[in-house]
Amino acid sequence: MPLPAELVRDFVNTFDVEAQTDELSSPADLALWLRARDLISPRDRATDDDLSTAHALREGLRAALRREAAQLPALPLYVQVREGEVPELVPAGGGVRGGLAAIASAAVGAAWDRLKVCAEGTCQWAFIDSSKNRSRSWCSMRVCGNRTKTRAYRARKRGSRPLQGSNTDTV
């Protein structure tokens, strides 16, 4: 299983906001995705209800990454307390709901100071900020950062030009 932050990032990125494509468009797709990450067994199958829960979890996590209040769906989790260790949330069962619960549990253990969503509104791609001071705003400076900065530059240039057809000379 991937590290908690990577699992959350990858799960959130199953929906591409810009392209409007969903990697989890059917219960079978959800089961394949979870199986590929060893979150469910080969015999587990997803239902339409599981898919709805997965979509709600994904968008709740995306909202949380935007630092907005987020409501996550109810999943089978319990607090495990071991002597001398920090309590942790763990899935209370197996199957697809248990796999989704493992993702929710990973969100609790993820490095939230490093896990972010791209500030470019049309993108919303989740990424892990590996910058030294944790100040990265975009998934890619080359694409989204450039797009945002170019848009801001053009808006400033439009605001500084006199209106076309106006006479700025005074008589």
Rank of each mutant, 00 (worst) to 15 (best):
N146H: 03
N146D: 12
D44T: 04
L34W: 00
K116T: 01
L72R: 10
G165R: 05
R97C: 02
S135D: 15
G159P: 03
N167I: 06
V108D: 10
G60E: 05
L51F: 01
A36R: 13
M141V: 11
G109T: 03
T150Q: 02
L115K: 11
S25E: 06
V171D: 01
V81Y: 04
C123T: 05
V143T: 05
V79L: 11
E18N: 02
L115P: 04
V171C: 00
L57K: 04
L30R: 06
A36P: 06
T47Y: 02
S137L: 07
D49A: 12
A19W: 09
V17N: 08
A36H: 06
L77Y: 02
F11C: 04
G121F: 01
R156V: 05
D50K: 09
A28L: 12
G84W: 07
A46G: 08
Q71N: 14
A31K: 11
A106M: 06
V108L: 10
G60D: 07
V117M: 15
L32P: 06
P2L: 08
L32K: 14
R82D: 13
S135F: 10
L3C: 08
Q164Y: 13
P162N: 09
K116G: 10
L89M: 14
L75C: 11
E88H: 13
A70N: 09
D50Y: 09
R158D: 00
S25K: 09
L34I: 00
W125P: 05
L100W: 06
L34Y: 00
F15Q: 01
F15G: 04
L61T: 01
A92T: 10
A5S: 15
D48P: 12
T21I: 02
V8P: 01
A31H: 11
E59R: 01
R161V: 00
G159W: 14
V12Q: 00
A5M: 14
F127L: 09
A155M: 03
S137K: 02
S105E: 14
R156P: 00
R58C: 06
G60K: 05
R58E: 03
R142I: 09
D48K: 08
T53A: 15
